[in-house]
Design a protein around this nucleic acid. Sequence first.
RNA 1: UGUCCCAUGGUGUAACGGUAGCACACGGGUUUUUGGAGCCCAUAGCCAAGGUUCGAAUCCUUGUGGGACAACCA
Length: 563
Amino acid sequence: MEEINKIEAAEAKISKNFIELIIDEDLQEGKNGNRVHTRFPPEPNGYLHIGHAKSICLNFGLGKKYNGKTNLRFDDTNPAKEEVEYVESIKEDVKWLGFNWDGEYFASDYFEQIYQYAVQLIKNGKAYVCQLSAEEIAATKGTPTKPGTDSPYRNRSVEENLDLFARMRNGEFAEGSHTLRAKIDMASSNMHLRDPLMYRIIHTEHHRTGKAWCIYPMYDFAHGQSDFIEAITHSICTLEFEVHRPLYDWFLNALEVTGDRPRQIEFARLNLTYTVMSKRKLLTLVKEGHVMSWDDPRMPTISGLRRRGYTPESIRNFAEKIGVAKRDNIIDVALLEHCIREDLNKKAFRAMAVINPLKVVITNYPEGQVEEMDAVNNPEDESMGMRKVPFSKVLYIEQEDFMEEPSKKFFRLAPGQEVRLRYAYFIKCENVVKDENGNILEVHCTYDPASRGGNSPDGRKVKGTLHWVAAEQAVKAEVRLFDRLFTKQNPDDLEEGEDFKDNLNPESMVVKPICYLERHLGNAKPMEKFQFERIGYFCCDKDSTSDKLIFNRTVTLKDSFKG
RNA sequence: UGUCCCAUGGUGUAACGGUAGCACACGGGUUUUUGGAGCCCAUAGCCAAGGUUCGAAUCCUUGUGGGACAACCA
């Protein structure tokens, strides 16, 4: 009995990641009125990728785990880079991943409030309007090892600062001519504390606020305040913001806000082998036509993974498996692929398709006869039912399933050898028809009518089983085979003079214009997922230009099939 | 010649001062009406040195290695 209790106790002790430990501690100390409120804060300047998925699953996961809330907040403080299109795609992707946000906000919702915060700091002598140029600011900033020097505008009077800041807002100044800076410490060992910029002038229309503003808060002066306004308790971001944390806290302290203060916690971003994750590089791939679009099935974007046939469950599961920590990591993309196989294996409809067709004629099968064979839709899930597959005299099998001079361990079709056609009959190769150059045109076989369904009444065994399609009844389709986009394990790790595009995999997409698929697939709805016998997982998609069905292979092959 | 962060098998991630576990990858076996699925097995790890302690992956010190920081980006 004690033993059992011990085991149960061990099982109940679910390991927690370091963020959960921090939250537990805060809860124990009674912080934030025992609330947990997180947020996912993308800048709408591009499409979400698998790296964002980690953050999404983390933030929403914590919200759920602690019976708390999670906001979706768009960090739209730079109108030059942001677009409505990205806002929409981000919402769609988060929803698709299976998460519902409690509040939907934009940093731009808080522009007036943030402006008032700035005025408050000016009044307290903690901010000033600086007229140094970008170059001059950079030059007086010092370096990580050398202190900076004070701006000549640092000691303006409060009145003058207030006046200039108001005029900045009124649009009296050109871009780059004036900035609002926090008065902290130009000699700080932390570069971010050397009088950081709070506001800059940008005369660009904002996708939401239009022309209402021509000054925009910097990330550092918007993020913490936005978190505070939304009563976020735990503001989770990636490691590169670690050095920003003192500034995050400095602003909230300087503003003397009352109430629960958000706490910034940093974690290591996701890196994947054979994958680039930077938005800049992904954009380059799209712009230069190395891929078809942001949602090209080879892209690591959420929308690309979706088109490739990934399920939300598989991605959530992946996020769970990779864990969360603070050390830099590069996760084997094989783990992602494992996750989708694991999920699709249970869910995908099985089907037969021939990618590299070889014609097989059953010489003793009646001309014109068509039989319907029973096939299971998913051997792991009976509830997915059965289907009928047409069988006739002329078939296609995979070229690689036939060998004229078989090696010792080759148990598939070869002259004189008998194999099973899955769901159909035993067939035996009798003859090979070649053209004048010796290329194999077709293979002639005989079948055993008694072996229908795949078993011979006399109990004789065959060692190979092949997938096939009936030539006349098959659906002809274009199939695209996708593989990893990069040949290099770490495409970001470049040698001297090497460009990341040098490592693109030239075979990342192979188009097979003529493949033969099972009849019923011709009626498939776009984006349905199939597991084709032996070949892998496919996602059925509709070509947007020609309206024809395209089959995208979803899972990277390893060419490890033996035999 | 700075500040901050990080360090557990090949890759990730657990351990919360008390037997270093899990997953993926890799290798081997087995099975099958197609295997990349299933099942079984194996290999492999606490960065180093001191210290505290009955006991250290865990706490401390130093060293080593890696990363972040010098955008009017986020």
